[in-house]
Design a protein around this nucleic acid. Sequence first.
DNA 1: ATTGCTGAAGGG
Length: 380
Amino acid sequence: MAEAGEEDTVSAEASGFSDLSDSELLECVDLEDAEESGASVSKPGPSASKPGPSSGPLGKNDKHVNLQNCKRELDVSSPMERFHLKYLYVTDLSTQNWCELQVAYEKELPGFLTPEKSSVLDTGASIHLARELELHDLVTLSITTKEDAWAIKFLNILSTIPVLQSEGRIREFPVFGEVEGVFLVGVIDELHYTAKGELELAELKTRRRPNLPLKAQKKKDYFQVSLYKYIFDAMVQGKVTPASLIHHTKLCPDKPLGPSVLRHAQQGGFSVKSLGDLMELVFLSLTLSDLPVIDTLKIEYIHQETATVLGVEIVSFDEKELRDKVQHYMAYWMGHREPQGVDVEEAWKCRTCSFTDLCEWRKCGGVLTATLEPQAKKPK
DNA sequence: ATTGCTGAAGGG
């Protein structure tokens, strides 16, 4: 209440830089937020498209694109190298669980989404944002380096752990760590303690239609939350070290932090000078705050329009199964095997995919092409 | 540097 002035300062500063995307700091005080990122349903344009005036999908359509357009590179480099990736998102792996080729195309053609799809995603994103704002406010900071971006992530961890331990519930908790040779980054929807005192992860899934998801969708969602638990547990067990983080992300722990980030760190009571300091603090906070591993995994499916609860699933965690899957997925990213599309019986997934027209799997999949959607065949 | 390398999730 008494601190309302700070918020204006932060927002005003955000308009000074528009170069790099802003990042959000979770603010656990009672303030209004001047939110400007495109989370609103009615906003035109796909939310996931890259900045820039000519980033629409049309410009890419006339070019014949495929995953092998760099034959020379294909033989010598892994997808991680070819797509210039230092790490993957947890959702990359859950999309891979849906269809491996789809995530490969997403990496090659970022922001290539059908309008219907991006509209459903935008609605889901705004529902998530509304829920998040029930628990804390957001402050937009302008930043210029990836070190600043990670510093914000660390500040959010440092400020939310005590809230979880005292108030019992937090949302949008960042997780990261090396899994089967590749670094993964993600955000847990919600963590809370149950009446029994168990730590529960709660994932919200919003749905366009008022029905429960198909088996394939549930499987993907189970995998996603299991992966969150696996990474979170590793973090609180001290298995995710600053050294591993620096090694994978190539962050410079000694690079000076930007002024807005530094100021917020100080306001949060963290006397840090560098990103390295912040990493050490995060490591200590994760391992010394008496955080348990996650006990239960819960997924709630709700209808977007009416907010009706369609179902609640409790996911049983199977570490062996998870690791086997991740190992198989990482083999693709590290270039140890070729990507695969969906099986014939899951070809229905292609109907909602943005890349059907250019997908090599569909073109080359012998049996697959012959049996695909026989009733929807168009004479060309 | 072949000129630079990432908010994650968002739903099917």
